[in-house]
């Protein structure tokens, strides 16, 4: 356990000056700032809305882009960035000749990738809530302060987080095994497009495809409405989420056995 914690800390130490880590912070900040700007400059469009619908519209600026293409691309990028640190510096051989079990080294790396995705989605919640409340101060005609969406939003992003785990585990393993970016990126993008297509066409087996899960998760919460979404139905633990978590667990364990048996270059 000590080896795992040390490795996890080291992952943070290594990444704290890289785009991999800052991407997880800047992405939610920039998108939330964009939402803030839209609502600030186009406030007249939203004044008439009831508070809940207002919050939903506000949150959907981020959720919309994240739930479709951006989250899978971000995950592809995170899976790559935590592994490329070692590929580029040729440090796999040093990592695996440390007096730390291979399990800890591998587990900590995976856990750190999961942590970055979690951090990113967490910050989306934080920035959305903060900027919404900020808007009700600087634009009092937008009545954000009359409704509290914190709990719902936390649930939504938690579901999105769980839905991303399957994709993350696959991307992580591909990036671990291949040093060049093009393979995991190319395969990941193709699968993402297939997944998005399947989810958006409501294909009945889309829930079995990890790359369809982020979009499935989002659709399940904002479906069945014509025009702008005004209401949400939150059910975190749906079958696609179970599939996503199961895929993550299986791929993670399979990855460990691959690492264990593989010779280090």
């Amino acid at each position: 356990m000590k080896g795992f914690l040390l490795s996890f800390r080291s992952e943070f130490y290594k990444s704290r000056k890289t785009i991999g880590f800052w991407g997880a912070v800047l992405l939610p900040l920039l998108i939330s700032l964009l939402a803030l700007a839209i609502f600030y400059f186009k406030s007249e469009k939203f004044i008439a809305m009831p508070a809940l619908a207002l919050w939903i519209q506000f949150a959907l600026v981020s959720l919309g882009v994240m739930g479709t293409l951006l989250l899978p691309v971000f995950i592809i990028f995170i899976g790559y960035s935590v592994n490329s640190v070692e590929h580029r510096a040729d440090t796999w051989k040093t990592l695996f000749s440390l007096p730390i079990s291979r399990w800890s080294v591998y587990g900590a790396k995976f856990a750190y990738a999961v942590f970055l995705v979690f951090l990113c989605l967490d910050l989306f919640v934080l920035f959305t809530i903060s900027f919404g409340n900020l808007l009700s101060v600087i634009k009092p005609e937008l009545k954000f302060n009359t409704y509290h969406l914190e709990w719902e939003l936390t649930q939504i992003y938690f579901k999105l987080f769980l839905s991303s785990l399957g994709v993350l585990s696959i991307q992580f393993l591909m990036s671990l095994l291949w040093s060049d970016f093009m393979k995991p990126m190319g395969i990941g993008l193709v699968l993402t497009i297939v997944g998005i297509t399947a989810a958006s066409k409501d294909w009945e087996y889309a829930y079995l495809m990890p790359y369809a899960h982020p979009m499935e998760a989002l659709q399940s919460m904002f479906r069945g409405q014509k025009g702008p979404a005004r209401d949400i139905v939150i059910n975190v633990f749906t079958k696609d989420i179970y599939v996503s978590v199961a895929v993550a667990v299986v791929v993670f364990i399979a990855g460990y056995f691959i690492v264990q048996r593989r010779s280090v270059k």
Partner: peptide, 30 residues
């Protein structure tokens, strides 16, 4: 492995970190 220090082929060093940070990172792990 606790009792071994090694240098294999070209040194494995994180280029985006300073020399001291590379050592601090390893010190943390060890």
């Amino acid at each position: 492995l606790k009792e071994i220090g090694s240098l294999i082929e070209q040194p494995a060093i994180y280029a985006h970190m300073s020399g001291r940070e590379n050592l601090l990172n390893r010190a943390m792990l060890l």
